[in-house]
Design a protein around this nucleic acid. Structure first.
Lengths: 110, 110
DNA sequence: GCTCCTTGCTACAAATACTGTAGCGATACG
DNA sequence: CGTATCGCTACAGTATTTGTAGCAAGGAGC
């Protein structure tokens, strides 16, 4: 049975609360989702280019995630390939502090 | 075979780049990780309380994630239960915009 | 027409990850 | 002692992901 693509106000895997943040955490918590958004951050990529960028991840799962991200309104497919929508770019912005944090983390823990 | 807990400068599932952000995205992209950090955001929770907060997620996977989060330095176990470390709280801070974004998202897409 | 690319996307079996239930040893309280 | 709780684990069933292969559609060159 296919899992629902979380779109905000519905009930979602791991949560019956319907809080949007839960739907978002659920979507972003699926494998490769965060990575895909990250790789699309500054360029439009064809599915093959995206696969290369994602260390040859399985096309099956990439397609699945891309469908979910498109349905969620974060990614769109253009003639040049996949790219973030306006909303997707807003989402990516929220990762910027995460990147800075990752650098600090690597110095403290690594 | 058990996957490594990503700690910054090592090679990590889905990435040979060693960039800390990849290690972090890998860790956060595992099921329940984001949710656990979220649920610990403002209180120390025992393992059972955390399980309740996470909609009765399987204790197996919660323990696995908690181990990873502890090894990564984001969570610690005290006499009162699990809680975010200083570093973990910093990580959570980076989610704050995510929460606001989720609200906006739910209005646009949902 | 044809071949030779590349595109987005899918099938399918094997490998891995997750779930759900049960229960362990340790500790504390009566 | 019995009865709780705690953190944590075993194990079998199920869901998800991986890796390989390949589809149909579209363009470029012939």
């Amino acid at each position: 049975m296919a899992k629902q693509v979380p779109s905000a106000p519905r009930s979602v895997r791991g949560s019956r609360s319907g809080r949007p943040i839960m739907a978002l955490l659920d979507l972003l918590g699926r494998r490769w989702t965060l990575r895909i958004v990250w790789e699309l951050r500054e360029s439009t990529l064809t599915s093959r280019a995206l696969r290369t960028a994602c260390d040859e991840a399985s096309p099956t799962i990439l397609q699945t995630r891309l469908s979910e991200l498109r349905e969620a309104g974060f990614v769109e497919l253009t003639d040049d390939g996949y790219r973030l929508t306006g909303l997707g770019r807003e989402l990516f912005q929220t990762f910027t502090p995460l990147n800075r944090f990752a650098e600090r983390w690597s110095k403290q823990v690594g």
